[in-house]
Design a protein around this nucleic acid. Structure first.
Length: 868
RNA sequence: GCCUCGAUGGCGGAAUUGGUAGACGCGGCGGAUUCAAAAUCCGUUUCUGGUGACAGAGUGGGAGUUCGAUUCUCCCUCGAGGCACCA
C-alpha cells in the first residue's frame, strides 16, 4: 500500500479494472432480482456542469448500493441530443448542429467516465440518430392512425421582424430576443397528442406511486386539474348577433348562475371576431390583446382589460339580456374560450365588474352575509345557501348543482361535465434540429402518415440554420415527395417534434437499445421496466414526468410493455448553488466574477464581510447565493475539481454537503474537508497494514472500551444502511462514518484483539463508502487483504448485539426545562428512574416551594417533573 | 397572478417523526510540531450575563394545542422551482 493517498493513480487503476472486466455490463438474468437505476440523461450542451455531477453521483450511489445487495443492476446513459442550443450555437459559430452535438457528446462522455460511474456503456445512444428517432416516427404514425394524434390550430409567439416563431424563453418582456420587435400571438396548424384522453388515468394512477414524493404528485394533480362542473349554454340574442346559436361556457359554480351579469370571451373567440368587423375600436382592442407572448405567467400578471362587443346573449334561466365582453384574461385554450361572470362570488370577475361598472348581484349567503360591498372579501367566494335565485332559494351547493342541472338539461342548455385544466400536447416545432414529423400533405388524400417501410424520415445533418424559420421549409430536396397513397406530387411536413417527445420513452429503449425490429424488444422491456429508481431535477416535476408517464401508457396500449407507470420510485434532486460576486459598471450594468477568482475577508467570528478580486486586489460586491449559471458566472467547473482532488473527493463532498432533494451550496473549503477525510482514512489503513494480519475477532471477550469501539462500527452500519438504502440521506450516512473514523483513529493497536477490531472497523469504512467513493474503497478493500473486488462484496451486516448498552444516560426536566442527567441501568424500572430523578440535587433546587403535580417518564429517554 | 416547496449557530447541515436543539463537516480562535511555512495533531467555538459554578434567551415573525413544539394548527414575511416552445 502506498503511504500517501494519490487519487489520480487509484482512480485510474480502479476504472481500468472495471473496464477490463466489463464490470457493469448487464443482461437479463432470470434468477437474479433486477434493479433499474436511471438518472435523467443529459442534454449535450458542451461540458458537464455540477448539476450533472450531482445527478449522476446520486444515481451511482444508489446503483452501487443495490449491487452490493446482490441485485442485477442496470444503470445506462445516453444523450437527449435534439434541442435549441444546437441551433443557437450553429448561428453563432456557423457549425452544423449535428457536428456541434456529436462533438459535445464525445467530450462529455470522457468527463462522465472520469467520475467512475457504474454505467453499462454498451447501451449508450443519442436521440438524434435515425436508429433512435425512427421508432418515435413509427409510433407517431400508429397513433395518428388511431386518432391519438390530430391536427388543429395553436397559438405561438410570432416575431414580425425575424419572421419566425419564438420559444417562450426567447421572448423577453414581450419582445423578440434578437430583433427586439414586439411579439404577436399567431395561430398556426400543429399536431397534438390527445393527452386529455388519458387525463383521468394520469390522475388516478398517481395513487399507485407510493415511491414518488408527495410534492411532485400534488403538483401533477393540480396541473391535470380535474374539476367537476357544468357546461352552460347562453342562447344568442338574435337582435344583436343576428343568427341562431348559443355561447358555451364551463363553470364549477353553477349554483351562482343567477348571479351571472355578463359573459366574457377570449380575443380569439368567434363572437369577438364577428363583433369587431363593424367596430374599429374593438378591432384595435383585439389587436392589442394579441400583442405579447403566449406564456401563461405573462398573461396572468398583465393588467385585466376588457371591452364590450355590443353583442348580447340571453340568460338560460331568466332570458335576461347579458352583455358579451372581450377580456384579455379569458384563455382561448382553456375550456371553451368563454366564461360566465359572477362578480359577486368570483374575485377576478369582481375586480373586472368594479373597474367597468358592471352589475354585481349576490346570490349566495356566505359568512360575510347577504351583500358583497367593496373591497373584495375572500368569504364572498364561499359556498353557502342560495338567495335571490327564485325557486332555488334556500338550497345548498349540492342541491343547487343538481337542480340547476335538471332544469338546464330540460331546456337543452346545459349538462354536468368534467373539465381538466390539462390541455392537449402540441408537439409541432418550426425548427430544424429535431425529429421530423412523418407526415406527407397531399392535395387529394390530406395528411398521410409515412408508411412503415419508408421510415425513418431522415433529418439532413449538414445544415446550418440562420434563425429565420426552419431551413427544412426552404429545402425542396427534403419536402418534395410523392403521396404514399395515390402517388401524386405531395409536400412533406417540415415541422419537427417537441424535444420532450424523445425524452418521453428513452428509459424504455435502454432495455434493448440496439433492437432493430421494433421500438423496444417486449421481452427485454418487461424484464427491466418499470425503472426502479429515477433521479433528476425537481424542475422536471411536471412536464417531463407527465409526458413520460403518458408515453408509457401509450406504449402499453400498443402492446410494447405490460406495466402502466414508468418510474416506480422518484428522487427529485435540488439545485447546485454558489455565491455570486460582481462590480457595477458605469451604466449600472453588472459584471460578474467567478468565485474561483475572488478572495473573501472575514470578521473575528469568521463571518464573510468583504471580497476582493484576486487579480487586482480591489473589492467586489457580494451578490448573494444563486443557482450556478453562465449569466452570473458562478459556476464551478467539475473538471478542475476532479483534476485537482479526484472524483472520489468531488463525489464525497456533493453527497455530504446536503441531502439530495435540497439545494447544495458549493464550498471550496468543504471540498478540501472531504479530501482531508479521505486522506485520514487512507493514513489509518496504511498504518494498520504495517501490523501483521490480525486473527479473527473474539466477540465474547471484549473489554468495555473495545465494546464501545465495536458499537461505533455497528452504529455506522445501521445508520448508513437506513440512510442510503431507504431514506436517500447520504449526508447523514457519511457523517456517521466520519464519527466512526474519529473513534477508530483513537483506538489502540496493541493487542491482537485491538488489531482485529480495527480490521473490522476499516473494512466497514471501505464497504460503507464503496457506493459513494468507489475508487478509494476499491484500493482499501484490496489493501485490507480481500481477494474479490469491493464491487462484488456484500453490504455489511448489522450485529444488533454490538449496539446493546448496559447503562443509559437519562435526561431530567422540571417543567420541560433541562435540569440534569442521571445514569441508570438500561433495565431500571419506571419507579427506580422516577425515584432517582426526584432525589436529583438540581430537581430539589428547582422544585423547592412547589408542589409536584405529575411525573412523566419516557423509558430510556427522560423524566419530566411537572410542578407549580 | 396561479400551483408546489423551503427558512435552524459565522456557514453547509443534524435531531430516532412530539422528548437533551446544534450530530458531522467547514470557518474562526488558542495551542503543539517546525528555523519558517505547508501538512498534521490537540483544545475551544449558538447568543447574552458571569473569573467561575451557573443562569437567562434561542430553530424567519406572530398566535394556539401540549407536561413538553425545530416537529402539530392558524395567520404573516421572505426565498426557491414550475406555469405547457429552455432542457
Amino acid at each position: 500500500m502506498q503511504e500517501l493517498y494519490s487519487p489520480r493513480e487509484i482512480e485510474a487503476a480502479a476504472q481500468a479494472e472495471w473496464n477490463q472486466t466489463n464490470a457493469f455490463q448487464v443482461s437479463e438474468t432470470p434468477d437474479q432480482e433486477t434493479f433499474y437505476c436511471l438518472s435523467m440523461f443529459p442534454y449535450p450542451s458542451g461540458k458537464l456542469h455540477m448539476g450533472h455531477v450531482r445527478n449522476y453521483t446520486i444515481g451511482d450511489v444508489i446503483a452501487r448500493y443495490q449491487r452490493m445487495q446482490g441485485k442485477n443492476v442496470l444503470q445506462p446513459m445516453g444523450w437527449d441530443a435534439f434541442g435549441m442550443p444546437a441551433e443557437n450555437a450553429a448561428m453563432n459559430n456557423k457549425v452544423a448542429p449535428a457536428k456541434w452535438t456529436y462533438d459535445n457528446i464525445d467530450y462529455m462522455r470522457t468527463q462522465l467516465k472520469s467520475l467512475g460511474l457504474a454505467i453499462d456503456w454498451s447501451r449508450e445512444f443519442a436521440t438524434c440518430t435515425p436508429q433512435y428517432y425512427r421508432w418515435e416516427q413509427w409510433l407517431f404514425t400508429r397513433l395518428f392512425k388511431k386518432g391519438v394524434i390530430y391536427r388543429k390550430n395553436g397559438t405561438v409567439n410570432w416575431d414580425p421582424v425575424d419572421q419566425t416563431v419564438l420559444a417562450n424563453e426567447q421572448v423577453i418582456d414581450g419582445k423578440g430576443w434578437r430583433s427586439g420587435a414586439v411579439i404577436e400571438k399567431r395561430e398556426i396548424p400543429m399536431y397534438y397528442f390527445r393527452i386529455t384522453d388519458y387525463a383521468e388515468e394520469l390522475l388516478s394512477s398517481l395513487d399507485d406511486l407510493p415511491g414518488w414524493p408527495e410534492q411532485v404528485k400534488t403538483m401533477q394533480r393540480n396541473w391535470i386539474g380535474k374539476s367537476v362542473g357544468m357546461e352552460v349554454q347562453f342562447p344568442y340574442d338574435q337582435a344583436s348577433i343576428g343568427e341562431q346559436g348559443t355561447l358555451k361556457v364551463f363553470t364549477t359554480r353553477p349554483d351562482t348562475l343567477l348571479g351571472a351579469t355578463y359573459v366574457a370571451v377570449a380575443a380569439e373567440h368567434s363572437l369577438a371576431t364577428q363583433a369587431a368587423s363593424g367596430n374599429p375600436k374593438l378591432q384595435t382592442f383585439i389587436e392589442e390583446c394579441k400583442r405579447g407572448g403566449v406564456a401563461e405567467a405573462d398573461i396572468a400578471t398583465q393588467e385585466k382589460k376588457g371591452m364590450p362587443t355590443g353583442l348580447f346573449v340571453r340568460h338560460p334561466l331568466t332570458d335576461e339580456k347579458l352583455p358579451v365582453w372581450v377580456a384579455n384574461y379569458v384563455l382561448m385554450s382553456y375550456g371553451d374560450g368563454a366564461v360566465m361572470a359572477v362578480p359577486a362570488h368570483d374575485e377576478r370577475d369582481f375586480a373586472f365588474a368594479t373597474q367597468y361598472d358592471l352589475p354585481i348581484k349576490p346570490v349566495v349567503r356566505t359568512s360575510a352575509g347577504d351583500h358583497t360591498p367593496a373591497p373584495w372579501n375572500e368569504a364572498y367566494a364561499e359556498k353557502g345557501t342560495l338567495i335571490n335565485s327564485d325557486e332555488f332559494n334556500g338550497m345548498d351547493f349540492a342541491s343547487a348543482f343538481s337542480a340547476m342541472g335538471e332544469v338546464l338539461k330540460q331546456k337543452e342548455l346545459g349538462n354536468a361535465r368534467t373539465q381538466f385544466r390539462l390541455r392537449d400536447w402540441g408537439i409541432s416545432r418550426q425548427r430544424y434540429w429535431g425529429c421530423p414529423i412523418p407526415i406527407v400533405h397531399c392535395d387529394t388524400c390530406g395528411d398521410v402518415p409515412v408508411p412503415e417501410d419508408q421510415l425513418p424520415v431522415v433529418l439532413p445533418e449538414d445544415v446550418v440554420p440562420d434563425g429565420a424559420g426552419s431551413p427544412l421549409a426552404r429545402m425542396p430536396e427534403f419536402y418534395e415527395c410523392t403521396c404514399p397513397t395515390c402517388g401524386s406530387p405531395a409536400k412533406r411536413e417540415t415541422d419537427t417534434m417537441d424535444t420532450f417527445v424523445e425524452s418521453s420513452w428513452y428509459f424504455a429503449r435502454y432495455a434493448s437499445p440496439h433492437y432493430e425490429h421494433g421500438m423496444v424488444d417486449p421481452k427485454a422491456a418487461n424484464h427491466w421496466l418499470p425503472v426502479d429508481q429515477y433521479i433528476g431535477g425537481i424542475e422536471h416535476a411536471i412536464l417531463h414526468l407527465l409526458y413520460a408517464r403518458f408515453f408509457h401508457k401509450l406504449m402499453r396500449d400498443e402492446g410494447l410493455t405490460d406495466s402502466s407507470e414508468p418510474f416506480r420510485n422518484l428522487l427529485t434532486q435540488g439545485m447546485v448553488i454558489a455565491e455570486t460576486y460582481y462590480r457595477l459598471g458605469e451604466n449600472g450594468s453588472k459584471s460578474w466574477f467567478n468565485p474561483a477568482d475572488v478572495v473573501v475577508e472575514r470578521d473575528a467570528k469568521g463571518k464573510i464581510i468583504a471580497a476582493r478580486l484576486g487579480s487586482d486586489g480591489q473589492p467586489v460586491e457580494i451578490g448573494g447565493i444563486e443557482k450556478m449559471s453562465k449569466s452570473k458566472n458562478n459556476g464551478v467547473d467539475p473538471q478542475s475539481m476532479i483534476d485537482q482532488y479526484g472524483a472520489d473527493t468531488c463525489r464525497l463532498f456533493m453527497m455530504f454537503a446536503s441531502p439530495p432533494d435540497m439545494s447544495l451550496e458549493w464550498s471550496d473549503t468543504g471540498v478540501e474537508g472531504a479530501h482531508r477525510f479521505l486522506r485520514r482514512v487512507w493514513r489509518l489503513a496504511n498504518q494498520h497494514s504495517q501490523n501483521s494480519p490480525p486473527p479473527r475477532l473474539d466477540k465474547t471477550s471484549l473489554s468495555d472500551d473495545q465494546k464501545a469501539i465495536r458499537r461505533a462500527i455497528h452504529l455506522a452500519i445501521k445508520q448508513a444502511t437506513q440512510d442510503i438504502g431507504q431514506n436517500h440521506k447520504f449526508n447523514t450516512a457519511i457523517a456517521q462514518v466520519m464519527t466512526l473514523m474519529n473513534v477508530l483513529e483513537k483506538a489502540p493497536q496493541q493487542s491482537n484483539q485491538d488489531c482485529a477490531l480495527l480490521q473490522e472497523g476499516l473494512e466497514t469504512v471501505a464497504l460503507l463508502l464503496a457506493p459513494i467513493t468507489p475508487h478509494i474503497s476499491h484500493a482499501l478493500w484490496q489493501a485490507l487483504g480481500n481477494q474479490d473486488p469491493v464491487i462484488s462484496a456484500p453490504w455489511p451486516l448489522l450485529d444488533e448485539a454490538a449496539l446493546v448498552q448496559d447503562r443509559l444516560e437519562l435526561v431530567i426536566q422540571v417543567n420541560g426545562k433541562l435540569r440534569g442527567h442521571i445514569e441508570m441501568d438500561a433495565d431500571a424500572s419506571r419507579e427506580d428512574v422516577e425515584a432517582a430523578a426526584r432525589e436529583n440535587e438540581n430537581v430539589l433546587r428547582f422544585t423547592e416551594g412547589l408542589t409536584i403535580r405529575k411525573v412523566i417518564v419516557v423509558p430510556g429517554k427522560l423524566v419530566n417533573i411537572v410542578a407549580n
